[in-house]
Design a protein around this nucleic acid. Sequence first.
DNA 1: TTAGATGCTCTAGTAACTAGAGGAGCAAAA
DNA 2: TTTTGCTCCTCTAGTTACTAGAGCATCTAA
Lengths: 140, 140
Amino acid sequence: MHEVSIGEAAKLSGVKAPTIRFYEEIGLLPRPARTGANRRLFADDDLRRLAFIRHCRELGFHLDAIRALLKLQDNPKQPCDTADAIAKERLGEVELRLRSLKALRGELKRMIDSCSHGHVSQCRVIEILADHAKCMHPTH
Amino acid sequence: MHEVSIGEAAKLSGVKAPTIRFYEEIGLLPRPARTGANRRLFADDDLRRLAFIRHCRELGFHLDAIRALLKLQDNPKQPCDTADAIAKERLGEVELRLRSLKALRGELKRMIDSCSHGHVSQCRVIEILADHAKCMHPTH
DNA sequence: TTAGATGCTCTAGTAACTAGAGGAGCAAAA
DNA sequence: TTTTGCTCCTCTAGTTACTAGAGCATCTAA
């Protein structure tokens, strides 16, 4: 059956042991089997589920979205529109964030470039932060 | 002296009243004056500080960084290297995040494009999420 | 005078973990 | 056999930057 301890599961999946326990607690992972001494034993299925969760988290999905995706995975005969929609929503978030971060980068660069490294009283960084009107950031 | 209530301060600064109280509580804002009936009265200085904080937050600075920047602002004769360093650190974070989000966007697009809108069992989105090896994301 | 808006404090909740306390079990060396 | 050190258990509390709500006081306008 090839069952592993939580430490082993953590190593194999790249998810830390406390986080695995946390996922169990919030119902993202089913409760694994236990040894006589009450230690968790993870089977292949658990490890696969863990890998799925981890990959989703790396791509920035919220736990709620992951919960929905896992539910889909558990019912493979359903149409996959929901999975598609969740991924598209995430893509939208990413694109929004990208635009805003690009604008931000511009403003930060401008701020840093115009700093003449004198005293705080003449510091452009502080000045721009203090006075929004001096800011060229397009979206706030 | 032109002092305003917390609601007025919220309107003027764009920071919500509970958030203003929160900033006071954690020592980011000095305790403002009070009326006889114990209501907060914000002076111009407070409003300037609030605007500073808000602008910093919009640019994504952590409250700790803002605390440091405010301390600098309070001692204008210091050299402004610290302000410069904080802004540069933030720029670094932004650039890192940008790279990672761009990679993410690519992966999400690829996932969505290869979805044929059938059943979950053949869904490429779910499949790629389940199996990291099928993922082209360069950095994880 | 009374209704509705605004203010006060305090507690608790959010996301997604992370850290620590205090204790039990296990494997290997002395 | 004992002891050392690692892993594991549960439980509580802390993190960031707020947000929501309860229960009460005060202010403003009709």
